[in-house]
Design a protein around this nucleic acid. Sequence first.
DNA 1: AGAACCGCCTGCTTGC
DNA 2: TGCAAGCAGGCGGTTC
Length: 257
Amino acid sequence: MPELPEVETLCRQLQKKICGRMILATEIYDKKLDGIKNIKTGRIISVERQGKTIIISLDHGDSIKIHLRMTGRLFWQKRSDIPPYSRLSFSFDDGRVFLVDPRRFATVKVERTKTEKVRNDLMTDFDEKDFLKKRACRKMNIKTLLMDPKAIAGIGNIYACEILHRSKISPFRQGSALSGKEWKKIFAAAGRILTKGIEKRGTSISDWRDLYGQKGENQRELKVYGREGEKCTMCGRIICRIKQGGRSTFYCPACQR
DNA sequence: AGAACCGCCTGCTTGC
DNA sequence: TGCAAGCAGGCGGTTC
């Protein structure tokens, strides 16, 4: 599933491919997305990422906000045929960008471009003081807290598990019970893991592919996610899988305290 | 206010 | 082999 590094990978590819160019037409193949059929054609002036949302800003002042959720993908294609599970396409003079999404969770919104800052994206703009004051004090377990998109944008299940393993912090700990030192460890681990994820062009553990259908390489870097029953690379104990808030958490019960 | 739970979706895996 | 049930989960919304 696309998380911050995957969306960043797509964003960089989109910047190269479509920034500065005209969207000639928009086609909608899924009734669920009919709400945006009044989208105006225009020239793309920027492609940015905010958390897991891709923001495509047009010269007439509207922005297209795409969230891929679970199985959404963006796919560049020169040919005119429509790939399976296509929900939407943007046409350019030499090809099209398709939103492909088997599960239909992806969302697309059109809004007037805003410049306000949210400041909850770890890799671009993060207000650490504000986070520690308003979010870190919650009683929610740290794993679920890391995945709260209002607290921190862009971290999903895979990277939350990896960050906690690298920080050696148990996923059961409450946010409010962590020391300042432990939070520092989490921020440092998050920075390294997300940077590595971007360098490796995302984690292709299930069906993630980039704009050109290429797999990422970061699945080889994963230490706990998807490794239930395998030995921990740090201590050799067996990695466990449990459920938190309805989602799988993978962790090492020996390393993570 | 915050924590917990629900609904949206459908391809894939598992069990009989 | 074939079919039904169960599972996967980001996140906005609802409920308590």
